[in-house]
Design a protein around this nucleic acid. Structure first.
Length: 514
RNA sequence: GAGAAUAUAGCUCAGUCGGUAGAGCAUCUGCCUUUUAAGCAGAGGGUCGAAGGUUCGAGUCCUUCUAUUCUCACCA
């Protein structure tokens, strides 16, 4: 599999050749058992096994009168040896099923081999279905086969049913170990597996939803010579042959809009984006965002699309429009509340800031007890007030609309109100989950906006955007009116699956080296 | 970047006033042919996160470091 193995034909280590495994007594014993198996002519790592049935299907389709022949494979999770007969559970991709193994049925040699197996080993079993005296649907083994010997002890928790509720003892719960060794987490914590299955279902449903509208799924550069489309610091890398700096994308917005210029009616991309910023339970340095651009539409149309998308995704994945997120019961049933950012501040702070000057806004912030950086201007002040006093209170899905122009250099000026743009964010549980606007398509205005960003940058704002001449050239050819949308997939999955940390919806969250 | 908490057996955790390491599960040996947190009898397993220091003596007290978790800051 790996290059190291390919270069090392002698990877049939004997125990004393593998000091890198840092053996404890349990691993030592398992290595010895592996050797015993090899000595007995049993390959502990054969090539294939023909599976005919899966655990939960066997249980679902069980009929008392029929002994169905089955071949199942999976990892041994429990063993109960009772002298000349044994019970064990194997776990496959769908769940667990009990196996019953009797010495006088499989033979002495096979039974002795079975006694060398451990919790964690992967086996294939052929036999027939039956129900035990205590009523558990099981497989009566006629033969079994070791498919992979496990060398490390697996922290399998003990489970007990109390009044139909499953009680778990000594669960593998150390977060650090769970994230660093996600494979172990997935083996022993079934709810973790379910979360990631749901994540996959969310993405496939969205993909199907977008595709069925006739929009095109596309791929755009991750390595970008000029990064843009968001306000964030990038990761920088270097291309050797070209001897040039490249940036890992912080967004793909500007590339997708080039494709709208190119004549597609709708394009979307599920994109890994990278932002060189802090890590906490809502932020991972690489995260997934879907961006969607649809020609001839505006942000009002997009709000309706987002309502439908969230609602239908919840129904599809959870069979319910209700979800528990950050301790709150959330309903994703449309319509979602809509509030302009100015109205939201009035509603939650009792302050009318409509038409206020920068000095007046500063006084409002002061009244509310907010310390402000003296350098920031009106738009940022409004954003600060909103972020501090309003956003955390928006628990049920709420569209916040009509942001100050200076905070949104890629959005189109509002059709009837000066100084603000046609933009919305969807806030759920006090957190932003998506961002959208009627896209700015006037190349002259866009150039002015980017140039004023460049000035902010010169004054030390590291997150201000860079002038992207090729993007402006594309707009100069003419981009139709267009609605754009970005949804943070990780946060959306947190919402749908009820997880309170982004690390619980990303298989391998970023960790410092061990 | 700041603060708080945590780090002891494969897993989950105790460990008192500083006196030389404990439990349950897992593992090993023996018994047990429908068990299910199987049971019964016995056994092994520890660089107490790392490095210094105080002390006759440190899992325990002090200092530094590392990682994780939470909160804040930064940030969507």
């Amino acid at each position: 599999m790996s290059k190291e193995n390919a270069q090392n034909p002698d990877n049939q280590h004997t125990p004393d050749q593998t000091p890198q495994l840092s053996l404890n007594d349990q691993m030592q014993r398992r290595l010895e058992e592996r050797q015993h198996l090899l000595d007995a002519g049993i390959n502990p790592y054969p090539c294939h096994f023909d599976v005919t049935s899966f655990s939960l299907d066997i249980i679902a389709n069980f009929r008392e009168e029929a002994k169905e022949p089955v071949a199942v494979a999976g990892r041994i999770m429990t063993i109960r040896k009772m002298g000349k007969a044994s019970f064990f559970h194997i776990q496959d991709s769908k769940g667990k099923i009990q196996i019953y193994l009797k010495k006088d049925e499989v033979g002495d040699t096979a039974y002795d081999t079975f006694k060398l197996l451990d919790i964690g080993d992967i086996v294939g079993v052929k036999g027939y279905t039956f129900k035990t005296r205590t009523g558990e649907i099981s497989v009566h083994a006629e033969s079994f086969e070791l498919l992979s010997k496990s060398l490390r002890p697996i922290p399998v928790p003990k489970e007990k049913e109390v009044d139909g509720e499953k009680v778990v003892f000594d669960a593998f719960s150390d977060r650090e170990q769970r994230y660093r060794q996600r494979y172990v987490d997935l083996i022993v914590n079934p709810e973790v597996r379910q979360t990631f299955i749901k994540r996959s279902a969310v993405v496939s449903f969205m993909r199907q939803f977008f595709s069925s509208q006739g929009w095109l799924e596309v791929e755009t550069p991750i390595l970008q010579p000029i990064y843009g489309g968001a306000a964030a610091r990038p990761f920088t890398t270097h291309h050797n042959a070209l001897d040039m700096e490249l940036y890992l994308r912080i967004a793909n917005e500007l590339y997708l809009k080039r494709l709208i210029v190119g004549g597609f009616d709708g394009v979307f991309e599920f994109a890994k984006d990278f932002r060189n910023e802090g890590i906490d339970r809502f932020h991972n340095p690489e995260f997934t965002q879907v961006e969607l651009y649809v020609a001839y539409k505006d942000y009002n149309w997009m709000m309706e699309l987002v309502e439908e998308l969230f609602y239908r995704t919840a129904l599809e994945v959870n069979k319910s429009e209700v979800t528990l997120f950050l301790g709150n019961e959330i309903s994703l049933k449309p319509p979602f509340k809509r509030l302009s950012i100015i109205d939201a501040i009035e509603e939650y702070c009792g302050k009318n800031i409509r038409g206020k000057s920068e000095v007046e806004l500063r006084n409002v912030a002061k009244d509310l007890g907010l310390e402000l950086d003296p350098k920031i201007s009106s738009g940022k002040i409004i954003d600060e007030i909103f972020g501090e006093f309003v956003e955390p209170k928006l628990i049920q899905p709420t569209f916040i609309t009509d942001y100050p122009t200076e905070m949104s250099p890629l959005a189109k000026e509002h059709r009837s109100q000066p100084g603000i743009v046609e933009r919305f964010e969807l806030i759920v549980g006090g957190k932003e989950v998506c961002n959208s606007f009627s896209e700015l398509n006037d190349p002259v205005v866009q150039r002015e906006r980017l140039e004023s960003q460049a000035k902010l940058r010169q004054r030390g704002d590291e997150e201000a955007m860079i002038v992207d001449e090729d993007f402006l050239r594309a707009l100069e050819y003419g981009m139709p009116p267009c609605a754009g949308l970005g949804i943070g997939i990780d946060r959306m999955v947190m919402l749908i699956t009820g997880q309170d940390s982004i690390r619980d919806v990303i298989f391998f969250p970023h960790m410092k080296p061990e």
